[in-house]
Simulated assay, not measured.
Amino acid sequence: MTDFSANQYEDEASFGDYFSLLKPRVMSLVVFTAMVGLIVAPVSVNPFVAFTAILFIAIGGGASGALNMWWDADIDTVMKRTKTRPIPAGKIPAIEARNLGVALSGISVVMLALATNIVAGAFLAFTIFFYAVVYTMWLKRWTPQNIVIGGASGAFPPMIGWAAATGGIAMESVLMFAVIFMWTPPHFWALCLFMKSDYDEAGVPMLTATHGRRVTRNHIFAYTLLLAPFAIGLGFTSIGGPIYLAVAVVMNALFIKGAWTIWKRKEDTSLDDEYKVERSFFKLSLAYLFLHFGALMVEALLPFGLGGW
């Protein structure tokens, strides 16, 4: 294993290096979906309390990212996509990333519980544990189903936002969880299809490496079909409405069409063309999640009588 002890780090790390430990791109998704969960909840929340809740949920998400980078520093060094991260790039010692992650985890959980309620704080604590321990330390290097089970950690934020507002769980928050949970595998497997060599070299048992591209395509199509009922069904709950439902129907039709295109591809297709198809599906998957949760927020923020059912 690569030595990431502190004595090899000579240059002083910048604020940007430490911020990148928090995986800001992933954090932005956590913040957005948690904010939507809080906004659509059927309880009025003081704006300052809402801001505080989202802030500490974001810090908790960042803490998970730091712990992930600490544990995965050895494989990040091997993968092209991750070798420029602060630890493998020699900017921050792994132990500092670990200490930062632990400290921010404790702060975010305690402060969220104090600012909102115990349920939200406990939910955040479980989410950090699930991502850092269950997914990063156990599932990621053990099973090709790592992203399926581990994807739950990325699906909890809207439930945390909902719990911060209501102090509990409801069918609506569970369905928001289900949409992200079912969306994560096809989203990530599309990335794996055009980043396959990275995971092979790092020894990470992604589905593309353990079962091949054909099986991965089959899984993408199957999960995309299973996702649609959850996404469209959410439109018929108290937080849905005609705007959300229209977005869900159109986006799921496009998503299924994209998954079908990937599924029917033959293995002898030229590599360049294959990258184009799977990159296109990956980009569509990003728009898919943003538009679904954006539509939920629009339904909640429209004047009474114009949004929702």
Rank of each mutant, 00 (worst) to 15 (best):
L193M: 10
H187Q: 09
T52I: 09
K140Q: 02
L302R: 08
I95D: 11
M159K: 02
A34V: 03
Y9S: 10
G161V: 02
A170C: 06
F126V: 12
T52A: 14
G151I: 03
T136F: 05
D76E: 06
I57N: 10
D76W: 01
A248Q: 04
L175G: 02
I232K: 09
Y288R: 00
G37Q: 07
L29G: 09
L139A: 10
L114H: 05
N7G: 11
S5M: 05
I243W: 13
T143N: 09
T269H: 10
G305V: 07
D272L: 15
R214F: 04
L245V: 09
I57M: 01
N218F: 08
D74Q: 14
M137C: 04
P24W: 02
P144G: 03
N68F: 14
R81D: 12
P93M: 07
A89V: 02
S20R: 08
P186G: 07
G60E: 05
M35E: 06
G101I: 08
D268E: 15
I160R: 07
G154L: 04
P242K: 00
G258D: 12
E274S: 14
P93H: 03
E12I: 08
M182I: 15
Y199K: 00
N146K: 13
F129G: 06
A97I: 03
V49K: 15
V277F: 04
D273I: 15
G65N: 10
P186F: 07
D198R: 04
L301D: 03
